[in-house]
Amino acid sequence: MIPAKGLAQCRHQLGLDQSLPGQYVQYLDNSLHGNLGTSYLNGQTVGKAVKQALPVTVELLVLSQLIALVVAVPLGILAALRPDGVFDQVSTGVAFGLLAIPAFMLGVLLVYLFAVSFHVFPATGWTPLTQDLGDNLKHAILPSLTLALGSLAVYMRVLRTDMIATLREDFITTARAKGMPTSHILLRHALRPSTFALVTVAGINIGTLITGAFLVEFIFQLPGIGLLTLSSIYARDYGIVQATVLVVAVGFVVINLLVDLLYAAIDPRTRHARATV
C-alpha cells in the first residue's frame, strides 16, 4: 500500500491536486512550450518518446503512399483508356476485393506469405533509417505494402473515374487533332487535370492511413507512434496516450494543409484566383 503522504506528494507532482480546468490550462500551457509531460511509468519525458517514435511512423506513411501512387497511377490510366474493357473490369474486381480486406488481415497475410512461408522479409522489428538503409528498407517493406494496398485500390478507382471524364474533354480532342501520340496525351494533357479528386481523396484518406499505421505497427512491432499509443493504453500510461493523440491530431491538420497547398500547385486556375482576389 502506498503511504498517504507519498500519495499526496505523487498527486502534487502530477498536478492532480489542481481543479480540472486548472489541470487543463496547465496542460495546454506546457504543451505549447513543447513540454508534453512525463510518462507515469518510467519517468521518461513524453516528448522524448514521441520524438523517437515519430520518424518510424512518418517513414511508413511516406513509403506506403509512394508505393500506392506509383502503382495506382499507371493502372488507373490503363483502366480509363478502355472503360469496361477487360483490364478495367479485372482491376475493378481486384480493387473491390482489396477493399474488403481489413488492414490487419492484410498484414497477417503478408507476414504469412513473405516472412513465414518464404522468409524473404523479416516479420517484425525495425532498424532506424540512419543506422542501415538496406536493413531499414527490408523491415519497412512489408508494413508499407500492407498500408499501400488499401490506398492503392482507392486511388486507382478515383483516378480512373476522373481520367475517363477528362478524356472526354474538348482539349483532349484538340490534342488529338494536333497529332500528338497517345502516351503524350495521357501523361501530359490528361493526367494533371485528372488528379484533383485524387488529391481530395488522398486528403480524406489520411485518417484511414493513420488508423492503418497503428494496426500495422502493432502487427509488425514497429516502434512508431501507433505502437507507443497502444502499449501505453495497455499499460494505462495516460500521459503518453494524451501526447500521441495530440501529435496525431496536429499531424493530421498539417497534412491536410499540405494537401490544400497541393491543389494550387496542380491547378493554375486556383492559384491565380487567389492571387487576384
Binding site: F96, P102, V158, T200, I204, N205, G207, G212
Partner: peptide
Amino acid sequence: AGIPSTSLGVMAGAPAG
C-alpha cells in the same frame, strides 16, 4: 467513385469523395 473502403477512417471516403 466513393468506393467503400474497409479501413476505419474511410467511412469518410465514400460520401465526401
